[in-house]
Amino acid sequence: MVNMDKILVVDDVTKEYPGRLAISKVSFAVNKGSIHGFLGPNGAGKSTTMKIIAGLMPSSSGSVSVLGEKVTPKNFKLKNLVGFLPENPPLYLDMTVEGYLKLVAKLHNVKNISTQVTKVIEELSLIEVRKRLIGNLSKGFKQRVGLAQALVYDAPFLILDEPTNGLDPQSVVELRDFIKRLSKEKTILFSSHVLPEVEQLCDQITIIHRGRIRATGDIHQIHQKFRQGLVIRIGIGEREVLPELSLFGKYEITSDILIGHERQFHIVFENDHDCRSDLGKFIISKGLNLLTMQVESPELEDIFLHLTENRS
C-alpha cells in the first residue's frame, strides 16, 4: 500500500559507476509538507542520490518512489511533479531570464505561461533582470533563475542541491527565507554544507557519508540519539582551580577558556543523569565562585562530525 504521508521513499538504492560505488543501499523517506535536509561532506553521494530521485539517472539497484509513482528516467508522469535545482543549474547563458523561463514552462506544458512566469519572476525578485541575458548575471541571480526554473511549473516536490552555495550573505538570507515560505505549500528536499542553515530550516535530516546513510529522521530525535552523555558549561573565577569531579562519574573536560574574568569549562559527563544541583553545591562547598552553569545540547555539527569522522 502506498503511504501518502511520505512524498518520497528511497529504498535500498545503490549506484555503481565502473570501478566505483557512488552510493550503497541508501534508504530514507521524506514526509509530505516537510523540509528535509540532506547532509554530507563533498563526494558523499548527495548529488548522485538527488539526480536519481529527480529521474536524471537510473540506480543500479533499489527503488525510488515519489507520490507513490516509481521513479525512472522514462516516467513522464513525474516530470511535472518534481522540481529540481541541480548544483550547477542548467541555464542557457544566451537567453534572457524571461525567455528561458518561458521555454521551461513550455517544455512542461504549463497552461498559463505568462502568468506563471511573471509570478515566479516576482517571487524571486527577478523583475529588474527579466530582460537581461542570463550569461551577464551575477552568481546570485543565476542561482535564483535556476530556482525559478524548478518552480515555474509548480511542482509539489522540490529537490534543491546546495541552493545557497557560493552566494553572498545577503542572498543566502533571502533565499533561506524564500525556502521557508515555500515549505508552506511544497515538500522540499535540500542539501547543504551549512549546518546551522539546516538546523534553522529543516524538520528532518538525513546524513550521508561515503555513499551510506549514517542517520535519518526527525532532527530532534537525532539530537537525542547521538547525545553523548551530559555536556555542562561551568564558569568559575579566573584564578580559581576546578576541583576533581569524579564523584559525579566519569567525565572529560573538552575546553577550558577565559572569558573576561571568568574561566569556562565544557565538561562531558558519561552519565546522562542531570547532576547540576549536586554539582553546584559541591563547587560552592569548595569555596569557589560559581558564575555559570548550563546544560548544553550537542550541535548538529558535533553529530555530523561524529558520524562522518568516527566511521571513516
Binding site: 536524471l56 511535472n80 542548467p90 541555464l91 512542461h108 526554473q149
Partner: peptide, 12 residues
Amino acid sequence: QATIDLFWLSPV
C-alpha cells in the same frame, strides 16, 4: 554544460 538535463527533467 548539462543544459540537456532541462529536457530530461521535462516530459520531452
